[in-house]
Amino acid sequence: MAEAVQRRPSHDGVPLLRARGLAKYFDVSPPFVTRALQGAGRSILRAVDGIDFEIETGKTFSLVGESGCGKSTVARLIVGLYEPTKGHVEFDGQDMAGLTTRKAMEPVRRRMQMIFQDPFASLNPRWRVADIVAEPIRTHRIIEDGREVLHRVGELLELVRLSPRDGEKFPHEFSGGQRQRISIARALASNPEFLVCDEPTSALDVSVQAQILNLMKDLQRELSLTYLFISHDLAVVYHISDYVGVMYLGRLVEWAPAEALFHNPQHPYTRMLLDAIPDLDMSGRPRQAVAGEVPSPIHPPSGCHFHPRCPFANDRCRSEVPKSLPRTGGQVACHAVEENRIPETGKA
């Protein structure tokens, strides 16, 4: 805990969740015979390559990045769908690696739930909505009596602004936004404190996205929830987050309070991402053309992964992996920032 306070001097909140050196490698090698014939070695995909972050109780921490940056893998590591290759996830001070049996996991499972991206795949099409929402209650035997379970399901559906009568129906009778509400109701069924939201609105239309984002904010206030929010949409992230982390090829390149990150971005990649957002205000702001594309995560560039696209890269960037250093209330992993080689942005 002392370490936590030291790491984030500007806030004295207690972290509910802490990831330390979290890493997940996938073996994406071709089958043995192919490898032997081609004389190729194993290829390891470092989807998440040692990241550290903390989430304070009652706050929203977001991870943003382009596809393949490992943000969804982080979400799955946190909820235990994947085993970390290295590092730890601590929930409320407890190391989850120690919870090896299902029984030991159960108390954490009740307190930590997940909302998924695709509202058409995240609900079992053969189940009635009431059964879907009741699943966590029945699994953890939170309520034993059958009628009371249904009563609770009704309450949950009302909580997400649906009608208790909707429990009768099947998922295919609902629109994408309504399904996402059902998904949220299910996630809330075991009274969790912490929700991992993996791109919960990216499959939705903007007007529906607004409904869901508003709902999530309301629920956070009403139920004092803590969110880990995964998204590729910077505007959405800015709207919902207290803290934002930017990922690039499996590494967390920068994290900071949302205001600081969006109005005073430090890392060149963060600046590039912000610059790429289409300008809705039509201010005629000239845009710098973004160069290059995300390289293959199987063979990432040496040193700082971003160096081939970075206008400030030098030899040190090409050879040495930058360390995360404190900056503007957050942390930045960039040699150029450390050496003050980047001009301050005139934003905000």
Binding site: S207, V208, Y238, H239, L280
Partner: peptide, 22 residues
């Protein structure tokens, strides 16, 4: 529709919400 789009320039607590669905 325009109100429901989150914007970077000005932070709002709540987005404008069109009730219901198409």
């Amino acid at each position: 529709l325009m109100g429901s789009i989150p914007k970077l320039a000005h932070a709002t607590e709540r987005l404008v919400q069109i009730e219901g669905t198409m």
